[in-house]
Amino acid sequence: MSDVTEFPIMVKNLTRRFGKSLVVNDLSLSIPFGKMVGFIGLNGAGKTTTIRMMVGLLKPDSGEIAIAGYRVPSQRDSMKSHIGYVPDRPNVYGWMRVQEAIDFARAFYPNWNPDHCERLMKMFDLDRSQRAKNLSKGQGAKLSLLLALSHDPEVLILDEPTSGFDPLVREEFLQGVLAATSERRQTVLFSSHTLADVERLADSVAILHEGRLVLHSPVDSLLDCTKRIRAVLEDVSSARQTPPGMVFQQVSGREWTITVEKFSRDQVEFIRSHNRVLQIEVLDVSLDDVFKDIIRGTRGAA
């Protein structure tokens, strides 16, 4: 494998089966230093499995993983003090009080930052004497986040951190992530179903579908270059000529919507010249739209 310290998060040809199904299929992904990447996909696309392999909780069938410059799982123990992991469900010992959990974790991290921990405690407003099993969903996740951030990790990995949260807690949690990472330039990977969060916070987005990486692109260029072209068809029954670079198309009544990845005026001209259309307009898209169209397009092509 080439220099493992090149990317803080790097996976190469990662594969994992569960029984007969191929949950992660030849996945390769490299995330540059200091970037925040949103990892999105449908349920069962393989996001949690990929993340668990990255942090050394699951053994891959084949492929290579390097996190914070350490190979996983062979150099797993050295890697752990350099990363922070927030699981999809809190896994702190239920009987431990918040303060006990902090003292426990503190004993093992050489680079524990007590000031940072105190600041996060104030920001998250957690009750020190509360037992972990009595914490609400949001508070439990905040505790996991606090424990993950307090040792100033280089890499932060979050697995669907805000699923099932009420809106206020979600905002507090994300503020915690944003505040901590923006001052320290950490590399962050977070998987999420809330595409609005990914669109707001992520520098780039990686879309996983049926275990394969379908797209990895900076969010702003993706949203700049992906457009929906909406045309009104004169004649619904005649065959339609689609422009090159089409990702997905949909017809509803007389309205024909084409999603293109690298928009150019030529595509509009192509549609106009090769089809009988009454009206054409170009629409901007949100990440939600892009994701759905790409997934539908991939499914259709499969």
Binding site: L174, Q175, E183, R200, D203, D220
Partner: peptide
């Protein structure tokens, strides 16, 4: 940029833009 990003809960690079 940083304060705005935190208030609006968006990526600082977006605020920069």
């Amino acid at each position: 940029v940083r304060a705005q990003a935190l208030t609006l809960l968006v990526n600082p690079n977006t605020v920069q833009r």
